[in-house]
């Protein structure tokens, strides 16, 4: 029956939500450190090395700096919407982690505890829904700033995100035709015994990866910020922790999109040889969680690596890539997948 919830379940889910939120914030925080260190390595510099040993406390120092900076709200800005913008952006970034299966079940206190907050049967669509709302954080904030650079950045960001959502959705349909389920838990479990879905959907994965870069506003698609043309894009007028939220939410988005890609195409918490290990189910679950995070870190590294290697697109190139190359390619992939499935089925 719907909405019949026990107190224990609420407590269990609340603890899980708190842990997942804490981990995503922590990882987002240290992604900024990793980004600066890797950038320094690629450019043959030292990077942050003053706060703590190897500069390990740098993210804390940055966060503290942002908190204590003077907060400026422009005089002609719409005050309510100006505050609402970063709030929406941050909240939507944190909401997506709810349907990701972080591990299989843990058996503690005589109960099976699933390491997934909500196993809804439309899991992947939920992520799409929340991601498509994230754009409001940009639009509301950029418009409320009452600044032409902000507005230009906003319009660029919004049209970029809408354009790449289409190709992303189309590339995903081909995968969903194979899985036959929208639940992320089902998708991961299907990859537990067979091969990972990257083998069936290499082109779909490539399209998804490119779109994930665009959705996260990462170089080579960081046209929304585009420091050299638009000052800072949609968050030009922001200062203090509101700016911090905009910057920080992008790292959370990066983390979550890495997690989604691992879940969909790289087996989630499964790892090769997990069925031949003779360990207790709890140990296996923990090993699975570790494997999941290792895969996520590889993707995060890739995100950062690309940023410091590939230059930015021009805006018309971005639109051409999205509409004239990725979408037809995704439709072609869809057709080929459908035809092959029909052929093998008979």
């Amino acid at each position: 029956m719907l909405l019949e919830i026990s107190a224990f379940l609420v407590l269990e889910k609340l603890i899980l939500v708190a842990i997942i939120l804490g981990i995503s914030l922590f990882i987002a925080m240290y992604s900024t450190y990793a980004e600066r260190k890797l950038a320094a390595f690629i450019q043959d510099r030292r990077g942050p090395n003053r706060a703590g040993i190897f500069g390990i406390l740098q993210p804390l120092a940055d966060g503290g700096k942002l908190f204590f900076k003077e907060e400026i709200i422009p005089e002609y800005a719409n005050k309510f919407l100006f505050i609402l913008g970063p709030a929406i952006f941050m909240i939507t970034a944190c909401m997506t982690s709810a349907v990701i299966p972080w591990g299989s079940t843990l058996h503690i206190f005589g109960k099976d505890i699933s390491l997934q907050v909500a196993d809804v049967n439309i899991g992947i669509l939920y992520i799409f829904g929340v991601v498509s709302l994230g754009v409001y954080g940009i639009m509301v904030g950029g418009w409320a700033s009452n600044n032409k650079y902000s507005l230009l950045g906003t319009i660029r960001a919004a049209s970029q995100i809408i354009s790449y959502e289409l190709a992303m959705g189309l590339s995903l349909i081909a995968l969903l035709m194979i899985t036959g389920s929208l639940s992320l838990k089902d998708i991961v479990e299907q990859q537990s015994h067979g091969v990972w879905y990257i083998v069936y959907q290499p082109i779909g994965f490539l399209i998804f990866l490119v779109c994930a870069f665009a959705e996260c506003n990462r170089t080579p698609f960081d046209l929304a910020e585009c420091d050299s043309e638009l000052v800072m894009g949609f968050h030009t007028e922001y200062s203090s922790m509101k700016l911090g939220f905009y910057l920080f939410a992008e790292y959370i988005n990066m983390f979550i999109s890495s997690a989604v890609m691992v879940t969909l195409y790289f087996g989630g918490y499964n790892f090769p040889g997990m069925h031949s290990l003779h360990v207790s189910p709890n140990t296996l679950t923990i090993l699975g969680v570790i494997a999941f995070f290792v895969k996520i870190f590889i993707f995060l590294f890739f995100f950062i690596w690309v940023r410091w290697t590939v230059p930015r697109f021009r805006y018309d190139q971005l639109m051409k890539l999205g509409w004239k190359m990725l979408i037809p390619l995704a439709i072609l992939n869809l057709l080929i997948t459908g035809a092959l499935m029909l052929y093998l089925h008979h």
Partner: peptide, 21 residues
Amino acid sequence: VVHIIVYAGAIMVLFLFVIML
């Protein structure tokens, strides 16, 4: 969820877009 994706996520973004422009 489709209601969110289609109406809130796509159509209203375009509305907002036009009004802002």
